[in-house]
Design a protein around this nucleic acid. Structure first.
Lengths: 228, 228
DNA sequence: TGTGTTTTCGTCTCATTAAACATAATTAAT
DNA sequence: ATTAATTATGTTTAATGAGACGAAAACACA
């Protein structure tokens, strides 16, 4: 059934998430070749022999979005023998949280953002990978304020609350949210306000940068120390 | 520096943990060949083309310990180009929690248990992998009672507490621990007691079996529903 | 000046959790 | 019968977190 002397191929695939138009969106590329021609896929690429997995994922991310220094975490390694119809490809999946304002891609028929709530037909097991990345994002958010990675550098508390509501998929009480948000370590209150809206201007906030380690446990343990 | 046309090799390595003599121990094999001849390593093997990663890990586990149906979870994939001195080997690490009483290995100069608190010189990046598996085990234990996977099928509450104390590396209050333990879903009180000790016999408990998914998020989300 | 919209702000209650803590019961051995 | 070792068991307190809840201030615009 399988030729056991064939070699594996190993790729990294990166689920790139952001918030646009009040919806969580994932960056997808359209496949131009078989297999799964004309289906959508998450960006990926082969791991080069000279780079480690994190570097490979960063490279893929940078190739596609021209951003770096963002939240990037190894998600899970998928290795079902049948996940690729022709060859044996094991993929180490990562997920990234990026700011829409940082991305310099031009949406084209072959590359673009798609709402995770309405995914197009996807290649391989990429639907499963995306679902899993959303689950992991929720888990992260329960522990640490990763959501700010999805926000613009300066944001209002209302925007922050919106992103939490999108990720956790539930409404939050405004006053309770603000109370908790303001108590979050790393949140910095700015002396700037939104303008150019016919409403009361909102104060802007930002986050001091946090060192991230793609090995999530390190990240967790760092955040757990965040105690008052 | 690297020949980019060389192919990767992919292995699974399994950190097998148990409790023996009131200490967390890991199963190690002595390497008989270079590289790292005479150093110790965690059991591993190449992923066959016909099996997925979970199956490969289970196979390695079964080859070494002859147990299956135990706690096995994908840990992390390590892919530093220099982790193997000669070739490019990417390893998908798993960790397993097993019961000492289930294991039928004979400790030999080439295979045996080692206290994680006093590891011998290890090959490759295996020390890092073991450390990480301990961290992950602690994270798991904060969420769900995985520790019972390390206990014999029937155990006393004192034994259970000991295993928690070993994993979390701190002393716990006896009464508070028992209170929480008894409230744990899945714990079954037996009508059996320890005997053959010159002390008051202790009641035995067991755990109803839990379906496990090696993709930990599933596991977590299942356990989180465990609410009264 | 008034209307509409959004921001901003604090308190109370309830439930949950963590921690501290002491004594009686059971058994084997002597 | 006494001793030694271990199991077994509840209450109180303090701290924390979640949720509910309404009113005033700031701005744009008409």
């Amino acid at each position: 059934m399988f030729n056991e002397t064939k070699t594996h191929e190993i790729t990294v695939d990166v689920v790139i998430l952001t918030i646009i138009n009040n919806a969580i969106q994932v960056l997808l590329v359209k496949r131009l070749n078989e297999p799964f021609k004309d289906k959508w896929a998450i960006p990926g690429g082969y791991v080069r022999l000279s780079e480690n997995l994190d570097q490979a994922a960063l490279r893929v991310l940078k190739e596609r979005t021209n951003v770096d220094n963002i939240y990037l975490e190894q998600l899970y390694t998928f290795g079902d023998p049948l996940r690729h119809p022709n060859s044996r490809v094991i993929t180490c999946a990562y997920f990234a949280l990026v700011r829409a304002e940082d991305i310099k891609i031009i949406s084209s028929p072959e590359l673009g953002w798609h709402k995770v709530s309405a995914l197009p037909p996807l290649a391989f097991d990429h639907k499963e990978i995306i679902q899993y990345s959303l689950k992991r994002t929720r888990e992260r958010l329960e522990i640490c304020p990763v959501a700010y990675q999805l926000l613009n550098e300066k944001f209002t508390l209302t925007e922050m609350q919106k992103s939490y509501e999108l990720i956790m998929d539930k409404k939050l009480d405004k006053r309770n949210f603000r109370k908790k948000a303001l108590a979050t370590e790393g949140l910095i209150e700015l002396d700037e306000y939104t303008k150019s809206s016919s409403k009361r201007p909102a104060r802007l906030y930002t986050f001091e940068s946090i060192k991230l380690d793609s090995k999530r446990a390190h990240f967790i343990s760092n955040k757990k120390k965040e105690k008052k």
